[in-house]
Design a protein around this nucleic acid. Sequence first.
DNA 1: TGAGGGTACTAGGAAGTCCAAGTAGTTACT
DNA 2: AGTAACTACTTGGACTTCCTAGTACCCTCA
Lengths: 171, 171
Amino acid sequence: MPIPLPMDPIAEAKRHWINHGWSEAANGMAAITSIMRAQQIFLARVDAALKQHGLTFARFELLRLLAFTRDGALPMASASARLQVHPTSVTNTVDRLERDALVRRQAHPTDGRATLVVITDQGRKITEDATQSLNHDVFTALEIPADALDSLIQTLTTFRLAAGDYVEGRR
Amino acid sequence: MPIPLPMDPIAEAKRHWINHGWSEAANGMAAITSIMRAQQIFLARVDAALKQHGLTFARFELLRLLAFTRDGALPMASASARLQVHPTSVTNTVDRLERDALVRRQAHPTDGRATLVVITDQGRKITEDATQSLNHDVFTALEIPADALDSLIQTLTTFRLAAGDYVEGRR
DNA sequence: TGAGGGTACTAGGAAGTCCAAGTAGTTACT
DNA sequence: AGTAACTACTTGGACTTCCTAGTACCCTCA
């Protein structure tokens, strides 16, 4: 592995921000940059854990979503909405999962425009295995104390709501 | 804009996790998924603010780093280390910035292997303008209260240190 | 001095994200 | 019933990230 930096690059950037008279923006910059970096670290860990199953996080998320549904099927558009990614990203992900026979496309019974994505038996099996790996190797192995984890989740949940990512309601 | 989801998909996933007997991993899953989603939201905002300047976040970060240095120049490898991205990502970013005449490549004076990336006058100007936009439109416009922002930064800083992202020491 | 081991950068490729635009199919309204 | 507006999906393109492999150069040590 590469030798780590001898200082925190984000703290350094924050210092620069303050020295340039942008104090008001310094914490926002630091928070956003921290999240970007944390995401990079987590994505690397998640993808490393999923690699042995031939999955990536994007593929896992779709499989996991399908596996949770009543009959293992969902229209592409619903998957796009639930996963909060662009429809074309779902097309892309489904292409690859279909290539690996973990899902298959199926015509929607009543809406001629829509396509159902259906998880296959093999897809279900891999999803369960992958979930175990993630739970064991990543989700329960965080270097963040429980109380900090709770407040992190709380802060981001509130933020996402304020950002219009979802609305309180239904169900 | 798309109609937002009528419920929090992460809270939903957490519920599923608990119902499947994975309670111990539920908070880790929720935290990591929240960070992934927050990153997506922030990246979209940042890129939207930078679009008017013809930049992306990756390009901005490199320009900003160069503009902070004493003489506006840095070897590619140093930039890679500071930005914590793969060397080939820097090559890619520099290619595009060079195409737009915001930086130029220059031979390293003493090390024949190395290449210096040098910011141009135009690059400096755009960097300053872009910084103003980001500070105004994004960094000071977060829907997160100051105290929550502080603890978010604190938690992620501690995490990054624990994850070996950097080491305390050399200023 | 000269050979081997490292370091710096680039090329090519796989993936992911998004956007813009195009084709079908559906719905709603006159 | 027929047209207009909307929705669902795909294609193609831009961009970012990483990985693997290859070339060129430096540096240490026998």
